[in-house]
Amino acid sequence: MTTTAPPLERDLVETFPFPFPQDTYRYSTNVEPAGKLVPTPAGQWGASMLHVDSEYHHELDERAAILQRDPSRQQVLPHMRPAAWDAMLTLMQELGTAYPREFTLTRDDDGTFTWINRKQGIEQRFTYADETTLPEPETGPLGFIGSQVQEDIALLDQREGQLFVDAGIITFAADWSFGFDVGMSFLEIHGPVPRVHDMGVIARAQTFLMRLQPSTPYRRTNWTLTIGRRLDVSTEVYHEWGPDRGWIQTTDDQTFGASVHLRVEVQHLVRLPDSGAVMFLIRTYMLPLEQLARIEPWRARTHAVLQELPEDMADYKGFISYRDRAVAWLESQAPSS
């Protein structure tokens, strides 16, 4: 059977954060200041920390459905309550600044806040640090804001000379389990990633994060390949999406190009000003190879990166079994000279 991808909204191509600055890829502490606009052959991305696009309602519906099935994707360890409030207020301010027509946060004279989200028809008056002033007190400020931004959110506590992932709402994890990892240190969570330890990448990243100041957020990108437009490729449901990695090798070329997606995470690293916690925002973008190949510089660059990528990295990223096929497919799409 041949699968064709449904047509993508144009903005998903135009704002796709193509992650490869060169023809080879290795792990590095690839951080840069947030908010810098990056032009691409298809458009541009990166103007703001939070990005609202044409998938807004679809992705938030999907997040709600995932949380309904598996509440462990959202957790706030008790000591992270101030960080959750801090995150909510920071994200609301950020949305209001980036999209003032859709989102507004105002502080009223009595110290309460009014939050308006016109995309979802929300108008909520709340008091900072008072859960009972939110629509669903039990899911708290993180649950409230998590249902209004497309980004996954992790909150890190800085203590004992380290960072600990002690809260978050992570529904679109790429091959890890937030429910299992919550409470781990930054170094522990990255334990399974090959190469990075010997290179000191994770330790350096942690030192960097521990020195972040609220006034200067940073960002980085990460990437992998995903089969289908599946946002939730968490370890919890590995048995559901794992077989796709076998299936994809049996498909015809057209189905392959429509199904395999370059999956890019834009991660923002933010020191929350009030609690002092570090906020990781993880936004996932997916572009089918079929679409990507229509932008020749992207096709050529992706081909070069995938072809050169060392085995252990392709293995960890989960596409070792169809990497050669992806390389061949991208090669076959080269413009005929």
């Binding site: 919550v182 409470g183 781990m184 522990e188 590995y238 048995h239 077989p243 796709d244």
Partner: peptide, 19 residues
């Protein structure tokens, strides 16, 4: 992979990619 909070090793389906 050991979770300090769960106090256990991580286990996942070993042949999930079989198709």
């Amino acid at each position: 992979h050991v979770s300090r909070r769960q106090g256990s090793f991580l286990g996942f389906k070993h042949d999930a990619e079989a198709y």
